[in-house]
Design a protein around this nucleic acid. Structure first.
Lengths: 204, 204
DNA sequence: AAAAAAATTCGACTAAAAGTCGAAAAATTA
DNA sequence: TAATTTTTCGACTTTTAGTCGAATTTTTTT
């Protein structure tokens, strides 16, 4: 009743790492169990299926990410920065695997999409809070907050996911964020510094 | 040198239908060849792999969709309507399977995402044209057109894909489209009628 | 502590599906 | 019609997810 939970976490961590490194489709159960040093049956004692493992891995990631987001949420910080920080905190920290993942995004569609959908679900309430704070401070001015936040998240994912964007992409993104929330022009332009003068990571 | 091409098209059509009906992952090569009445080897004479078939199917769909979009583009129509019509024409016509596909969207992530990515690629130049037309008519007013169009497409896909949206979703969408392009408020509000008073297809 | 019950582990086995290959048949070309 | 090329066949291989009953270990009960 204790050991079991530990083992499950262990397997989850291995699966998480391998899914990110090699992609969900390209990781076989056999590889996972070899890495973990256990038998097939043991694996299936803990997980119903490979897909169930993916869901559990995603749960794990989301939990972690939402945790970070909530810390940011609690921090004292200008609202616009808080908004962006929350959005930014909502993606997997893959330590050094960032590059690997970047390549993966195209090779790991299923995991990538499932994660993104979950993030939207989980993040909407958090961001709604921030936007409300902004409205009460008259920094933002809009209705239909949840729907706007959702759009924002979609745009942000598009933005950050491929990691390939130009100055002009960022410019448009900033403009859209401001307009989505009814913020004065310039309110969000700090994003440009935050993302960093993009040294043109790809072409486009 | 002739028969071959016909057969390939035939297989493509079968694959297309089955992928849409049952999803890419849930369709086996064996099912395709049974349906087509051919042997394994014949199939692999025409397609390198299952994934290659998917790519070919997507090419086929895109070609069709872009074809429709170009017709709309050539038609005489107010620019805002043309814009929306082009966006709207950019999705598979699955005859009666529309519902099936809607269900599928969740079960067919790979095909769905690959298609969406390709659509963005192909559609940006088309929509850019429309927006330019709009700018010259002083209906729209913006720079960085391509980047804005891309954002628009992303938002639109999000909007139309799940087919589940509320009045407020539409309201926000319309507002965002207008602001993205620097159109006067109300310019795009005909979208509401076009999409139709949504009778709340789902919850949310 | 011994017995009983429950939880965990094992790995050989099954099933499904993708992909290979050499040889046969059909169509084209010389 | 002979030679060459294209197309077709299907048995076979390989990979991978998932099953299952039995064995082992751990926990609970008596």
């Amino acid at each position: 009743m204790k050991k079991g939970e530990r083992r499950k976490q262990e397997l989850l961590k291995i699966a998480y790492r391998m899914f990110i490194e090699k992609g969900y489709e390209n990781t076989s159960i056999d590889e996972i169990i070899t890495e973990a040093g256990i038998a097939k049956g043991t694996y299936y004692y803990y997980f119903e299926s490979k897909e169930a493992t993916l869901e559990a891995v995603i749960d794990m990631m989301i939990e972690e990410e939402v945790g970070r987001a909530k810390e940011v949420l609690a921090a004292s910080m200008p609202v616009p920065r808080k908004l962006v920080s929350v959005i930014y905190s909502l993606r997997p920290v893959q330590d050094e695997q960032v590059i690997a993942k970047a390549l993966d995004a195209k090779e790991n569609i299923v995991m990538h999409e499932k994660t993104n959908r979950r993030i939207v679900e989980e993040a909407v309430p958090l961001l709604t809070e921030v936007v409300k704070e902004g409205i009460s401070q008259e920094i933002f001015n809009c209705t239909n907050i949840e729907e706007r936040v959702k759009m924002l998240l979609i745009m942000s994912q598009q933005m950050f996911d491929d990691g390939i964007f130009t100055d002009r992409d960022v410019e448009v993104y900033v403009d859209m964020v401001e307009k989505a929330l009814g913020a004065k022009s310039g309110t969000m332009s700090f994003i440009v510094e935050l993302i960093g003068r993009p040294p043109r990571w790809g072409e486009k």
